[in-house]
Amino acid sequence: MTDSPIASVDLVHIALPTRREHKWTGLTEPIGGYVLVKISDHEGRSGWGEAPALKDWGGEFGRYFGESPGTTMQVIEAYLAPAVRGAMPGDIIDLHARMDRIIKGFPYAKAAVEFAAYDLAGRQAGLPVHRLLGGAARKAIPVTHSIGLLGFEEAEREVAQVVQEGIRTIKIKVGVDPERDVEMVKRIRDTVGPKTTLCVDANQGYATPGEAIRTFRKMEHCELKYFEQPVEGIERLAEVARAIDAPVMADESAWNAHDVIQIVEKRAAQIVSIYTTKPGGLFKAMEVAAVCRAAGLVCNVNGSVETGIGNLANIQLAAAAPAVTLSCVVPVSTPVETLGGRVGGIYYKDDLIAAPMTLVDGMITLPDGPGMGIAADEAKIAKYTMRG
């Protein structure tokens, strides 16, 4: 296979139907209405990327802002696509330089373009993307299932099935109301028993560090692995971290490598949740992971409940980054034809990849096909494309 420059950049706005409503504190729109990017070379080969853009998702105190499908498509069409045409797909440093010169910010839009370029580069070279990132530190990715903001009984039914299916870690969304949160954690622990790992994620939902600390102390007897982003702000996160025994995880506070430096300086967290999208793509996510590893922080890979197109990038990162040692909050992307009633890691009724991800003993087997590892299903993409 030979290198060939980027000839075209095409966009698709899709809406994938959800298995059930999935929400967290601050989210006001449904998941699954995302933007896909298709990059093609002069020989007709293509790579795919995804921007799981959500207008409600951003960093602390307006430091980073939400991107919508509309803003994503406008930025790519007007700025990024013209900038990257003619670039070599595998020259990722040049790709980012072109994108950063033409427009500041918009990491989700840039990530989608970069994913498609990595996918195409891997297909041109006949290699999986994790090889382009340095190789696989692990070949199986443990999955954490997120139950979102569900009612008590629905949550209990879901986690019981998830554990039966082999998932070993469950994330409980909190940050709504302290009494509700404490009761939910107790009910989930009683349902799954002592052997399943539990963690809680407030999505900055608690009003003050004091409220977060008091609430966690009422939960901690349930043996929680970590307390994710209890409050907004690195300094306020540090207050919580000093007051509790369990590790604090930074998510909304940790978008890029510079954020991690500040987190380390403030001793605000012991764990960082790395996204492929928050820093602007896989290349910069590996920078985040490298800073974390140097500072002795451990990581997981998290995301915005991507379709299979974007989730493949999550899996490639989780495999390649040595700092990623924890179970990852990623979907088990599965087309409807092979779903079979499973719910563990399943957030959509269908998917956009040509084959399902393989889940064995609660872990996704790293796909080793060229590019992102599993081909896009262009018929499914056409089926779920939003018209008008």
Rank of each mutant, 00 (worst) to 15 (best):
R189H: 04
A250F: 01
G210T: 14
R214N: 11
V163A: 00
A246Q: 08
H130Q: 07
E156Q: 03
S146D: 10
D245N: 07
T215W: 06
E239A: 12
A254L: 02
E165Y: 08
A241C: 14
H258N: 09
P230H: 05
A268Q: 08
M219S: 05
L149T: 03
A207L: 11
T144C: 10
T191S: 00
C222K: 03
Q262T: 05
V248E: 12
I147N: 00
S146G: 07
Q161G: 06
G175L: 01
F227K: 10
A254S: 12
A268I: 09
V143P: 00
V264E: 02
R157Y: 03
G205Q: 03
S253I: 14
K225S: 10
T144W: 02
R157Q: 05
H130W: 15
V182T: 04
E223H: 15
K195I: 13
G193H: 02
D251P: 02
S253G: 13
A136V: 03
I213R: 08
P230L: 07
T144Q: 13
A241R: 09
A241G: 08
T197F: 15
R138F: 12
G151N: 15
R157P: 01
K218H: 12
V182K: 04
V159Q: 09
L237Y: 08
V260E: 08
E232D: 05
T208L: 07
Q161F: 05
D201K: 01
D259W: 10
S146I: 12
K266G: 08
H221V: 11
K266R: 15
V162T: 06
G134W: 04
R242H: 08
A257M: 04
V192C: 02
T191K: 01
K266M: 07
A250R: 00
V174H: 02
Q229F: 06
M249I: 08
V248S: 09
R242P: 07
V174Y: 03
F227E: 11
K171R: 03
P230K: 04
R214G: 05
A257P: 01
A202V: 09
E223A: 09
G175T: 07
